[in-house]
Amino acid sequence: MAKVMLGESEKWFIIHGIQDDMRNDGRSCEDYRHIEVETGVVSNTHGSSRLRLGSSELLVGVKVELGSPDPKAPNEGLIHFHVDCSPNADPSFQGRGGEDLSANISCILTRIYCNKSSIDLNTLGIIPHKQCWVVHVDVLILECGGNLLDAVSIAVKAALHNTGVPNIQVTDGDEGTQEISLPDDPNDVKFINTVNAPVLVTISKVGSRHVVDASSEEELCCNASLVMGVTKRGRTTGMRKMGGGSLDPESIPEMIETGKNIGRQLHISLDKLLKTEQGMAEDIEKAGYL
């Protein structure tokens, strides 16, 4: 069964361990679990990525479509996020059980991406007021092993990095109409610039210390956490407190500092990996789930 249940003594065991900077699986408080990222796994999307963080497993697929821009921002494209919790992850996600969680995550993602500094939406505009690219990011959660938000944000950044928007040409037809024509070569794409894309870092307060990348058991022990979006340069794009407990106002700046450092490191490793992957020959077969 996927539902994690802890007895009282197990909870205290975890909390005491964390106080001594010793977590159940041997990590320190600021260590992440083993992360595996692979991009370009789903071939009929414009960009995709697969991520494994500990025992959380996600698949992100990005598809781009033509659409009309928001009248308030006629030169910009649009990004839409959608999260789907597969019942593979937890039987309680069957039917409409996972909707609350999906709505929550997609809301947060929208928040951190829809500001000017994350992704330059101007590059996604085609014809002002008429046509623009609409990027649909679909996140599929296959296994929940704790710390979903961080995993989702890393996977989304990797997928967006992998997304190739076709280089279309706009030609002027008669009487002001404009024709959009596709390039002949399907590989003629422009990749989305994810230099400033943020990554979420969740810092959970367990007992009196805070830990990063809480596993599902640890999540049950914590009752307050801070989620922040951090960019490569260490700037914060958004922040939210989650959970039913309370946070000491003096500990918040400390948590933010920790978050920023961790975020920067995450970005460095992720970028290195993405660069290596891009450098590899295109023909290599993706392992995916095999």
Partner: peptide
């Protein structure tokens, strides 16, 4: 048994509700 299709599974992105 529950069957679900990811939204990116077909060539055209289709929003599929679970039920």
């Amino acid at each position: 048994c529950e069957f679900s299709q990811a939204m990116f599974s077909s060539a055209e992105r289709k929003k599929r509700s679970r039920g």
